[in-house]
């Protein structure tokens, strides 16, 4: 099964809609709740990263009998130093975003914890691509 979602940078009112749709689909497919939760957490954090940092992005989701693969490609400022971005507590989020309770520097670590595989690549000034796999 293939699903695709457009994510608009800066649009916090819609943040979480794609993750929520994927979660509903996984529940319909009777995927165990523990796995659904891990996927929902990882996708929400990834979606919020695009909303908080990028101009726009596309989330592509492939669900098969063996697991879920997600590719989130955005156009945006990119990440200068991926190792630093992965550190818990490190964030470049704006004050406005932090006031909402985002930007605690826990998003990428949360994604990593909940995925079986995670690949993050970025070109500063162009954009970032995040690939995730969670096995069923």
């Amino acid at each position: 099964m293939h699903l695709q979602f457009e994510i608009e940078g800066g649009d916090f009112s819609a943040a979480g809609e794609a993750s929520s749709e994927v979660k509903k689909t996984l529940k319909q497919l009777n995927i165990p709740p523990v796995l659904v939760r891990r996927i929902a957490v990882a996708l929400y954090e990834a979606e919020v990263n695009v909303v908080a940092h990028a101009y726009r992005g596309v989330m592509e989701v492939d669900i098969s009998g063996g697991g879920i693969y997600v590719k989130l490609k955005d156009k945006g400022p990119g990440i200068e130093n991926i190792d630093r971005a992965m550190e818990e507590g490190f964030s470049t989020a704006s004050d406005k975003v932090r006031e909402m309770g985002f930007g605690a520097g826990m998003g990428l670590p949360n994604i990593k914890k909940n995925c079986d595989e995670m690949k993050l690549t970025s070109t500063p000034g162009v954009g970032t691509t995040l690939e995730l796999t969670i096995n069923f």
């Binding site: 919020v48 985002f102 826990m106």
Partner: peptide
């Protein structure tokens, strides 16, 4: 918590 990622995690 008032941090969303903290709650998520």
């Amino acid at each position: 918590s008032d941090l969303l990622s903290d709650v998520m995690g």
